[in-house]
């Protein structure tokens, strides 16, 4: 027994050494970091992390802060609209691309290119296009439509939709590509069968193809939703959270309190709430996806 022990530990040694970065990342950064942040969200840390337990104080204060409530509300509006529009538009575009059209790769290249750009670039371009003095509003007015009003980045009531326009421009291409891959995975026999039966194409899509693509939809949904919770750069570049606090988002709240406001406890509590939001989306999905089968 005693002799076989070191033997076992050193067997496959190179592979274990090669896996050290992964093990450290998984345990120290991902698990350790998360546990650390959650634990310190129950303390009164201000400028420096300090282990002084205060229970749920930080959370109470968080949910009483107007800026946080606005952030959550914005995330909801942005998230829901983003999901609905990007999925509907993305799917329709994918369905059009799937009609054995010519120049498919040209169209795909054009619709996907914003996805290669950073959120900073996206935000700054749309800040310029939506600029009321020079951009879309100015042009439609100078064309004779004097009463045209569209200044989302200056009007607090609709500012979040200005961000949404930029977000959709950047992200819809990705959905289209993923949906197109899903459509290509559908058995061509199904199309032949429905054509023989004389079922119109749109009915085939809604009642046969989309239900068949359920796994693709769910996976894409989870990936996109988890990304939406993290939206940060776009806001910083396009609006800086303004006008006022009209386009604040949770990720920005976390950053501002942790690195700007010297109020670490608030930052930790807010980031823990973000983690919770992601878990609510991811855990049921992981359970469904990997719980029944063995491994992915």
């Amino acid at each position: 027994m005693a002799a076989s022990r070191p033997n076992r530990l050193f067997r496959n040694l190179s592979a274990k050494i090669a896996a050290i970065p992964m093990i450290l990342t998984a345990l120290v950064v991902f698990v350790g970091g998360t546990v650390w942040t959650v634990a310190y969200s129950f303390t009164s840390s201000k400028m420096l992390p300090k282990w002084k337990f205060v229970g749920l104080d930080q959370y109470e204060r968080l949910w009483e802060t107007r800026r946080w409530m606005v952030s959550i509300e914005n995330l909801m509006i942005y998230g829901i609209c983003m999901l609905i529009f990007s999925f509907v538009i993305g799917f329709i575009l994918a369905a059009l691309m799937d009609q054995k059209i010519r120049f498919e790769s040209t169209f795909r290249t054009i619709i996907l290119y914003p996805y290669a750009l950073s959120f900073i670039v996206t935000g700054l371009v749309w800040q310029w296009v939506l600029n009321p003095e020079f951009g879309v509003q100015h042009i439609l007015r100078s064309l004779g439509w004097e009463s045209f009003n569209f200044d989302p980045l200056y009007n607090a009531d609709i500012a979040i939709f200005g961000v949404l326009i930029a977000g959709l421009w950047q992200g819809t291409g990705l959905i289209m590509v993923l949906m197109l891959a899903g459509l290509r995975g559908i058995d061509q026999e199904i199309w032949k069968a429905t054509r023989v039966d004389g079922i119109p194409a749109w009915k085939t899509y809604i009642f046969i193809v989309i239900p068949m693509m359920r796994p693709v939809f769910i996976t894409t949904l989870v990936l996109v939703a988890a990304a939406i919770v993290k939206v940060y750069d776009l806001i910083v570049a396009q609006t800086g959270g303004g006008p006022g606090i009209a386009t604040e988002m949770p990720a920005k709240y976390v950053y501002d309190y942790m690195f700007g406001g010297q109020n670490l406890g608030q930052g930790f509590a807010a980031s823990t709430m973000m983690l919770l939001a992601v878990l609510i989306v991811v855990v049921p999905w992981a359970y469904m996806e990997f719980g029944s089968k063995k491994r992915g």
Partner: peptide
């Protein structure tokens, strides 16, 4: 190709970690 005991556990944690919002890990890092 060189699976060792526990490798899959670490890998699962790693993949799960991809979903954790960065904001949670910013300060510990």
């Amino acid at each position: 190709n060189w699976r060792f005991r526990g490798a899959d556990t670490f890998f699962t944690i790693l993949i799960f970690g991809a979903f954790i919002p960065y904001q949670v890990m910013l300060y510990p890092i």
